[in-house]
């Protein structure tokens, strides 16, 4: 119990140190440039304390409960012995890594659902769109994108195919989708790419990348271990744009049907 308290204190200080530059900039500009009273200052300060306390508890909890397990799991699943390497199977094929792909997809999805910065952006999007974009729907489509991305990224490390090719194809798909997407969803979709990979997703996904790159023969952890984060940042853009296109199409079809049926009634 004592060491838990110590790690809480330690993480608390670390979070404060991270947030300090932000606070200095915010208040510096507030007092030197804007020079106006902040409305509801007391409430905002309490909110800041909540954010600090919340992030601290969140990070300590993750480090105590989930990260060690997630990281060990990533290493164990990419272990050649677990994958069936033995006397009767001297060389592993890319398809022998199927548990790795499934794990990558599952962990990519579930960590994204819990990602605090994505929750923040989703809340804001729901608020501004007047409920047209549902916070949960947005988060689920982002999580699907991350899960496809991380899984494909794991496949890339196993096969040793070049990273730029994948990312370029991803970009081309995003550009094409942009031409067909509704104007209102484009900026939000682009933003989701940047927010998916933070506190929860990065440690576990990075461990998976490094674990794979150090056990797959012919890969170097330094060179091939990177790139999973990039996958997890491009694919959500695609999935959100795709979700928006589908939602729009369904809404249109529903409207046509409704119009047709109401026309009959009249």
């Amino acid at each position: 119990m004592l060491d838990l308290l110590i790690s809480l204190l330690y993480a608390g200080f670390a979070t404060m140190r991270d947030v300090l530059p932000i606070v200095v900039i915010l208040f510096g500009f507030q007092f030197l440039v804007i020079r106006k009273k902040i409305p509801n200052l007391k409430k905002i300060i309490i909110g800041f304390v909540y954010v600090l306390l919340g992030l601290t508890l969140f990070l300590v909890g993750l480090e105590e409960a989930l990260f060690p397990l997630g990281e060990t799991m990533a290493t164990q699943l990419s272990n050649p012995e677990f994958l069936g390497l033995g006397p009767d199977k001297p060389v592993l094929d890319w398809s022998d890594y199927y548990w790795v792909y499934i794990f990558a997809a599952a962990i990519g999805f579930s960590t994204t659902i819990a990602e605090p910065s994505l929750i923040a952006v989703a809340i804001k999007a729901e608020e501004i769109s007047g409920g047209k974009i549902s916070s949960v729907g947005l988060r689920i489509s982002v999580a699907i994108g991350v899960s496809i991305g991380v899984s494909l990224g794991a496949f890339r490390i196993v096969t040793g195919t070049p990273l730029p090719t994948y990312i370029m194809v991803g970009y081309i798909v995003v550009i094409i989708q942009t031409f067909f997407a509704a104007k209102t969803i484009i900026p939000l979709a682009y933003d989701t790419g940047g927010v998916t990979t933070s506190t929860v997703t990065v440690p576990v996904v990075a461990a998976l990348g490094l674990g794979l790159a150090s056990t797959v023969p012919g890969r170097s952890p330094l060179l091939d271990g990177f790139g999973l984060i990039a996958f997890a940042s491009v694919f959500p853009i695609m999935s959100v744009l795709a979700y928006a296109l589908l939602a729009e199409r369904f809404a249109k079809r529903a409207k046509v049907k409704k119009d047709a049926s109401s026309g009959r009634e009249a």
Binding site: G47, F48, G54, L55, T56, F58, G61, L66, A114, I119
Partner: peptide
């Protein structure tokens, strides 16, 4: 693991509460 998970859930709750009270309005 169990106290850790409790921390995670409590932390996320406080973060979201603080988000609406502090970060967004500021």
């Amino acid at each position: 693991v169990i106290p850790g998970l409790f921390f995670v859930v409590l932390g996320l709750t406080l973060f979201i509460q603080g988000l609406e009270m502090g970060l967004f309005p500021l």
